[in-house]
């Protein structure tokens, strides 16, 4: 939160209270104040679409309040009517009447200045996996499967390191062209890709999923995604065509090891409870 913005809005409200502003002014102040806080009050800006929804809700609430009694309605529209009809307001009315078409024309101008954009289809970045896949003839139950080499971490550390090192070798011969040297998703071909390669340093990627999820995404690649993942656009290969299952599990071990994350624990499935 940017405190200065919030305090400024509150200060304006206090001043309005002290000068006993009319209802119309209050309604305008609430709308503008809400907009100011939502639009400028946050360090991380909220999305424009969300802002529009919030402002529409605010406008509706203010409208409901203004029309909730005859007195309030009158207090709202009478100043407007007076402004439009009384002769003492003729000059300001003329100014306002002249400026509104100007503002409209300006916003039309702004709208037409926007560069042409190709149509955008929001895609699900991490779509849901199927229940089961077959990779190189081997069935893998995605809800239950653990990395077959994960337990070596406790039982045979040396063997585990060998798998991690093999994963490193696989990564730097296949994956780093897109996903980058540091796993950050900025490989030498990332500039030519849309959607962009996954960033494994992002805390929203590796720790959020079980290892079987990545096994699915690696084995079946872009083309293996459901339609909401935009399978025709993704450059992620179907690695089962080029890597063995062991190599794919190894590269997953390497990703977690190098990025310093732990995979999400298996969830309880049916009667089985993972401890």
């Amino acid at each position: 939160m940017k405190l200065a913005i919030v305090l400024a809005v509150v200060a304006v409200m206090v001043v309005l209270r002290l000068v006993r502003a009319g209802l119309l002014v209050w309604l305008a102040a609430w709308w503008v104040g809400t907009y100011a806080v939502l639009r400028y009050g946050f360090v991380t800006p909220i999305p424009a679409s969300a802002l529009h929804i919030f402002m529409a809700i605010t406008a509706l609430s203010l409208f409901a309040y203004a029309t909730s009694s005859r007195e309030r309605m009158r207090a709202t529209y009478e100043p407007v009517l007076a402004f439009a009809s009384e002769s003492r307001f003729t000059l300001p009315l003329a100014l306002v009447a002249a400026s509104i078409p100007g503002v409209v024309a300006w916003s039309v101008y702004q709208g037409l200045q926007q560069p042409l954009q190709p149509p955008y289809f929001g895609r699900t970045v991490h779509p849901s996996p199927p229940a089961e896949i077959t990779s190189r003839g081997e069935k893998v139950d995605l809800a239950r499967a653990a990395n077959p080499f994960r337990n070596l971490e406790k039982t045979d550390v040396q063997a585990f390191r060998r798998h991690v090192e093999n994963g490193r070798r696989v990564y730097y011969r296949n994956c780093f062209f897109c996903h980058g040297d540091d796993l950050g998703g900025a490989g030498m071909y990332a500039h030519g890709l849309d959607p962009v390669p996954a960033n494994f340093l992002d805390s929203g990627v590796l720790p959020m999923f079980q290892e079987s999820f990545f096994f699915w995404r690696i084995a079946k690649g872009g083309p293996g995604m459901p339609d909401e993942g935009a399978p025709g656009d993704s450059a992620m290969p179907e690695w089962e065509r080029m890597l063995s299952n062991e190599e794919m599990w190894d590269v997953i071990l390497f990703l977690y090891d190098d990025a310093g994350y732990r995979p999400r624990a298996l969830e309880a499935v049916g009667a089985e409870v993972a401890h």
Binding site: F121, G122, R123, P223, D227, E228, A230, P231, G232, D233
Partner: peptide
Amino acid sequence: SLTIRKPYFVFGD
């Protein structure tokens, strides 16, 4: 095919 589901960009599917 102006939808989210385009043919695979490597020569279709």
